[in-house]
Amino acid sequence: MTKPEGELPWKDLEIGAIVTEPGNAAQYKTGDWRSQRTTYDFAKCIKCALCQIFCPEGCIHQNADGYFEADMFYCKGCGICARECPTGVITMVEEEE
């Protein structure tokens, strides 16, 4: 997409609204209907990667320090990572307005 989708005028759509840029669904923010978000106590983290393995969204990545963290652009706040974490690193908290 040359422009963010919310700015694209109708004349700039391809014929039949065909998407000509493969993989551009990655630019679509799917994490905006989350009702809970993750918080982390990295002091307890043993870097086992179970949270990353269990994440159904595939949105957990290692940060610069090697800790596993969810990408809030895609995270739906399902809490599976918090439930599966063997050392209790992750706590789900309500999303604030």
């Binding site: 989708e5 005028p9 609204a17 065909i18």
Partner: peptide, 14 residues
């Protein structure tokens, strides 16, 4: 190309 893809309310009317 992707034909007939998903269009949220932000693009469907266009």
């Amino acid at each position: 190309v992707t034909m007939g893809d998903f269009a949220p309310p932000i693009t469907y009317p266009e």
